[in-house]
């Protein structure tokens, strides 16, 4: 199959690359670009560990073709903050003990960010709805919800 030349904007940087037309974004991120913060599991859109932001919306990168992302803004966990400049969600996830194995966490944080950007003052129930596509097997979600609520409290006044 002929590879497609693509120009992808990831975490503010433009990458020119060649990808198979059927390759999902996840594959390109992890295998070609080494952005392994985006995780893989079911590859069928059922678990959410591969969540990234596409023009600010949370999407499963295992289902999205890389070719569909041409000209759109992609943000992965690597684009959210480094050890020096953590995003408030990253801070609150650490403070509230929301992280156990951590494999679901990049996707969880990005899904939460997408939601908080839309709804800065959510209720716990709304956060539960927003994160219902992201499986976590370790935490029972409680401390994740606490962390997202706390981050909302930090972020709201900054808007």
């Amino acid at each position: 199959m002929r590879k497609l030349p693509l120009s992808l904007t990831i975490n503010g940087e433009t990458h020119e690359l060649l990808a198979e037309p059927h390759h999902p974004l996840l594959e390109v991120l992890r295998t070609q670009l080494g952005l392994i913060g985006t995780k893989e599991n079911c590859l069928e859109g059922e678990c959410g560990v591969c969540t990234v932001l596409l023009d600010g919306m949370a999407v499963n990168s295992c289902l999205l073709l890389a070719a569909q992302c041409q000209g759109r803004r992609i943000v992965t966990i690597e684009g959210l903050g480094g050890p020096e400049t953590l995003h408030p969600l990253q801070e609150t996830f650490v403070e509230h003990g929301a992280v156990q194995c951590g494999y679901c966490i990049p996707g969880m944080i990005l899904a939460a960010k997408a939601y908080l950007d839309q709804n800065p003052e959510p209720t716990e129930g709304e956060i539960r709805e927003a994160l219902s596509g992201n499986l976590c097997r370790c935490t029972g979600y409680q401390k994740i919800l606490d962390a997202v609520l706390a981050a909302a409290g930090v972020l709201a006044p900054m808007r």
Binding site: L35, K39, E78, Q90, G97, G102, I105
Partner: peptide, 23 residues
């Protein structure tokens, strides 16, 4: 004491390398 776990920062920043990430 309820201290943050030692590996928390690597996990929230996506830096922790899991076996499934290893190449």
């Amino acid at each position: 004491k309820p201290l943050p776990r030692v590996d928390a920062y690597g996990k929230v920043t996506g830096k922790t390398v899991y076996a499934a990430d290893f190449t």
